[in-house]
């Protein structure tokens, strides 16, 4: 059975993978904004930039547990990291919500928001459950998008988002039942698996080697 410092180290390493994947997706999306001035890519880029910073803060908190001298385990920092992540997930859902509004079709999932957000007693709980809601909203919209485009990659991304969503759900559970250490590990494993799936379009993009000198 891994000890608490082992768990903290594994957790921090997995969070760093999250940082790398999130910033990679954000980089490609924001590069796309420069080329195409697309607001959808802008929101996608912002979403992953926030997620990346959120994971970064959480990984630093994890490292703080290994090195108590750093003393960055304060609750405010944890909440700050969660806030960044939730903002990322919000932009992820918002990218789809704007598409929905533009096509004059409102997703019924939006109605669930007030109910879900009241389920946690403190801010960290509320942020976690909000993240879960936002990701699942993204999943529904991505699947809807797949029904339009029939692009298998879109379905694959929906799967990645689902894993991310289940991960945030476990994050919420781990906050509720802090004595069950495995919940936290399960959360980060699911999130990293989800993020790794989201990394595939970036890989394909990198292999494609798109080159244009400056915006039009």
């Amino acid at each position: 059975m891994p000890t608490a410092p082992d768990m903290a180290l594994i957790d921090a390493m997995l969070q760093f993978i999250g940082v790398f994947v999130s910033f990679s997706v954000a980089y490609v999306a924001l590069k796309g904004v420069r080329q195409t001035e697309s607001m959808s890519l802008m929101r996608l880029g912002l979403a992953f930039a926030f997620l990346g910073f959120g994971f970064l803060v959480e990984s630093l908190v994890g490292l703080g547990q290994l090195f108590p001298r750093l003393s960055i385990t304060a609750t405010d920092v944890v909440v700050g990291g969660l806030l960044l992540e939730t903002t990322g997930y919000f932009f992820l859902a918002f990218s789809h919500a704007v598409d929905v509004v533009l096509s004059k079709r409102m997703g019924a999932a939006l109605l669930i928001l007030p109910v879900m957000s009241l389920s946690g007693p403190d801010l960290a709980n509320i942020l976690s459950i909000l993240s879960f809601y936002f990701v699942m909203y993204g999943v529904v919209e991505t699947i809807y998008s797949y029904s339009r485009t029939r692009k298998p990659d879109t379905l694959f991304i929906a799967m990645g988002l689902s894993l991310l969503g289940v991960g945030t759900f476990f994050q919420w559970l781990s906050l509720l039942y802090q004595y069950v250490a495995v919940l936290s590990l399960l959360q980060i494993i699911l999130q990293v698996m989800g993020l790794t799936i989201l990394f595939t379009p970036v890989l394909r993009f990198a292999v494609g080697g798109v080159k244009v000198n400056g915006p039009v």
């Binding site: 490609v28 999306a29 796309g32 080329q35 195409t36 697309s38 959808s40 890519l41 996608l44 990218s95 789809h96 598409d99 993204g138 919209e141 991505t142 699947i143 809807y144 998008s145 797949y146 485009t149 692009k151 990659d153 879109t154 694959f156 991304i157 929906a158 379009p201 993009f205 494609g208 798109v210 080159k211 244009v212 039009v216």
Partner: peptide, 20 residues
């Protein structure tokens, strides 16, 4: 070159279920 880049980013956005 611009068209190739445009279609790549369009494909990237569509993969995430978004329109460019």
């Amino acid at each position: 070159q611009f068209l190739a880049a445009y279609y790549s980013f369009e494909d990237f956005a569509q993969t995430f279920g978004l329109r460019l």
